[in-house]
Design a protein around this nucleic acid. Structure first.
Lengths: 221, 221
DNA sequence: CACGGGATGCACTGGTGAGTGCAATTGTTG
DNA sequence: CAACAATTGCACTCACCAGTGCATCCCGTG
């Protein structure tokens, strides 16, 4: 009955993977309290009892899935940064492409961002250790990882700032965060053209703030 | 046993007010699914049966409280705009004072913002009509209400932009939203000095973007 | 003082869900 | 084939909670 590949290959023992994927889906869709282990088991094609062979209980399962998701997104963003920001051809174009891809991830991984909303709702009930891992591994750490790239770009004279982390946070704020908030973290997706306009204008604003006064900045909004 | 003032004075019939306040607290603290009407009744010093005399059920109660809260915040923001943005003395100072007060509201009304987190989590399950009322009455409408004030300021030549709503959204993005996101919507409050720094620098960035090139802009971050 | 409406306490129904125990089954490995 | 571990199905306990019905009580009003 299991998929096709036996559990021979590396990675998680097959069942565990199915459980964690189903859990991410269900927790995202239903929230923590509503989500039931029976449903998760059903969607994973697994006996409820099996879940308890892999996880201590509901809470443990949720936390595990949350951290996994955070790491996955962090990794995805890292790839995007490598792709768009390693070699700069046209700074404005590259930044827009990067931020757009990043914003699109919101609508392309609805499971994960549904989970993000759930985590926000549960934040006050989360164990401190988990909250720390979340802020360290998850979305909140995005601008920390962006900072070195901006620093390198600044070293080449294409940007100008004192504090790379603040600049990174500002870019985030002007683009991704704006889209995130206005779309309720992806729950009510913005129309594609609106996303593009928001990102483009956000990047342009960022460049007006941080580009050295050499190349003429583009027009105002 | 009820408080002191009889239900003689205007406003809601006393009990109803107690219920709605307790409901806001409990829904905010526990989330929708966890919150139990027994607990709400207990915290309101009211019999559970009484809740059903005023509200059709749990869902109705939640929605009612949510909309009430949204209206309250909208009103509070309106007052702040009147206080700080009606008569401009020093634009930078006034904007900072306004945004600071606005941001402080997050930490001063934890009940409400806890509710906001809950609503985010429930957004996908909310009836369309309620979601519309929320976006129209609640936080998302803040920049719409801010726009006319900025427009008046621009008419006096202190700001320069084509689209007042976009400018308003940008100010929001650079100040309040930044604080909101970084504090998990008030769940993990930022230290006061950090809030001040964030707001100040956000306003300064806003002015660099939208102030006409007359008065020398302040220093970069 | 009699009346009536809201408030109260309480018991009860029906439903759901976390977590467990166990015996039977399946797949893997030597 | 035999031993072993993971998986499964299922029944069961315990707890919680939305919503209801009802008899009682407390209140201000006429």
């Amino acid at each position: 009955m299991p998929g096709a590949v036996p559990s021979a290959s590396g990675g998680l023992p097959d069942k565990r993977r199915a459980i964690s994927q189903a859990a991410r889906r269900v927790f995202g869709r239903e929230g923590y309290a509503r989500a039931s282990l029976d449903v998760i088991a059903a969607e994973a094609n697994v006996a409820k009892r099996t879940i308890y062979n892999h996880y201590a209980g509901k809470e443990q399962l949720f936390l595990s899935v949350a951290i996994e998701g955070a790491d996955a997104v962090t990794e995805a963003v890292r790839v995007l940064m490598e792709r768009h920001l390693r070699k700069i051809v046209d700074l404005e174009e590259d930044l827009i492409a990067f931020c757009l891809d990043r914003a699109k991830a919101v609508t392309e991984f609805p499971d994960h961002f549904a989970l993000v909303r759930t985590i926000h709702a549960e934040v006050t009930r989360l164990p401190d250790a988990v909250l720390e891992r979340w802020t360290a591994h998850g979305p909140p750490s995005a601008h920390k990882r962006l900072a070195p790239y901006l620093q390198k770009i600044a070293d080449r004279g294409l940007l100008e700032f004192d504090d790379a982390e603040k600049a990174a946070n500002r870019l985030n704020t002007l683009t991704t965060n704006d889209v995130l908030i206005r779309s309720f973290y992806g729950a009510v997706p913005l129309p594609e053209p609106v996303v593009e306009e928001t990102i483009t204008e956000g990047v342009q604003a960022f460049l007006r703030l941080y580009a050295p006064p050499s190349a003429a900045p583009h027009q105002q909004n």
